[in-house]
Amino acid sequence: MKIQRLVLLAVSSLFSLSACSQPTNQQIEESLEKITFVLDWTPNTNHTGLYVAQEKGYFEELGLDVEIVQPSEDSASMLVASGKAQFGISAQDSLAANYASEKPLPITTVAAVLQHNTSGIMSRQGEGIDRPKGLENTTYATWDSPVEQATISNVMAEDGGDFSKVKLIPNTIVDEPLALKEKQTDSVWVFYGWGGIAAEVAEVPIDYFYFKDLNPVFDYYTPVIIANNDFLSEKGDVTKKFLQAAKKGYEFAIASPKEAADVLLKAAPELNQTLVYASQNWLAKQYQAEATEWGVIDAKRWNDFYHWLGENQLVEKNIPENTGFTNDYLME
């Protein structure tokens, strides 16, 4: 009996030591690298892979504690540049002015969320705006951006149209399909994966043309993931881990769009469920498309768009080749 008590005591001591040596949840959380990721707008299906990586623990598996936030009064670019966020969402066209300035913000694009520019002009079906020339003598809701208007002017000219004949009205639209249905405008620039799908869900018949199909120079990258340059320099290994987890999240969204949509809806229950499911199913084929892997950026396409901006004097100065992006951190 004495021997048995000693054995039990020894076993009990081992279990106690083992329990003491196990890290607590608080200790695990404190050991994780804290990352802030700022979106470009409210949550939508462009962001699904990030929410998947967060929900399924892909970030945590690689030692990261990622908080996904929405921008406040500052843009994602400003928040990332200031170091208030390490990563964020932007777009190649939006970043152009920064890279052409004398003192650019310290940010670099490290991954493409989508492989192709899915934006274009959406209009009411059957009214002749299924091609650029059809915009003549109609109303277009504009953001009054020089790059935006130069893009439309270019595709119109190639189609024998005259941009000066388009009646420009301010774009204050929140619901594009409804705006078309109620004839607040005849056409509007949208990204098909959200605006176009929203029209399908709302059963508003539309015509649509993609800019990239009319001029390959407009197949630039939007949206993209940007990072703070100091963070890249100091914590390149952490950046690789972040992108590895994000890539896994987007690959899940590609393979299982419905389940991925469920994750997004859990994070943002205010979204239209029917729209999210339809958009997610459509975008599943767009995240990677024909690329060898998610996130990679083709240097020629990146440079061609910035060359076009310089040639058309849409930026302060020409942007040197390969400025503002890298694929290096996508490598595991």
Rank of each mutant, 00 (worst) to 15 (best):
S164P: 08
S164A: 15
K165P: 01
V166Y: 09
V166R: 05
K167T: 15
K167C: 02
L168C: 05
N171I: 09
N171M: 08
N171L: 09
V174D: 06
V174I: 12
D175M: 05
E176V: 15
E176H: 10
L178T: 10
K181S: 14
E182F: 02
D186V: 01
S187Y: 00
V188T: 11
V188W: 02
V190I: 15
F191W: 15
F191C: 12
G193M: 07
G193V: 04
W194P: 01
W194L: 08
W194T: 06
G196L: 10
I197Y: 02
A198I: 00
A199V: 05
A199R: 04
V201Y: 09
V204K: 07
V204P: 05
P205G: 11
I206W: 00
F209E: 05
Y210R: 09
Y210H: 07
L214F: 03
L214A: 06
P216S: 12
V217D: 13
F218A: 11
D219P: 12
Y221E: 10
Y221C: 12
Y221Q: 11
P223W: 03
P223T: 08
V224T: 15
V224Q: 06
V224G: 06
V224M: 07
I225E: 06
I225A: 09
I225K: 03
I226A: 03
N229R: 14
N229D: 15
N229K: 14
L232I: 10
L232V: 08
S233T: 14
K235I: 12
D237R: 05
K241P: 02
L243Q: 04
A245S: 12
K247T: 14
G249I: 10
F252D: 12
A253L: 02
I254L: 01
A255C: 08
P257G: 04
P257D: 03
E259D: 13
A260Q: 07
D262G: 07
D262Y: 02
D262K: 04
D262W: 01
V263W: 01
V263Q: 02
V263L: 06
L265P: 01
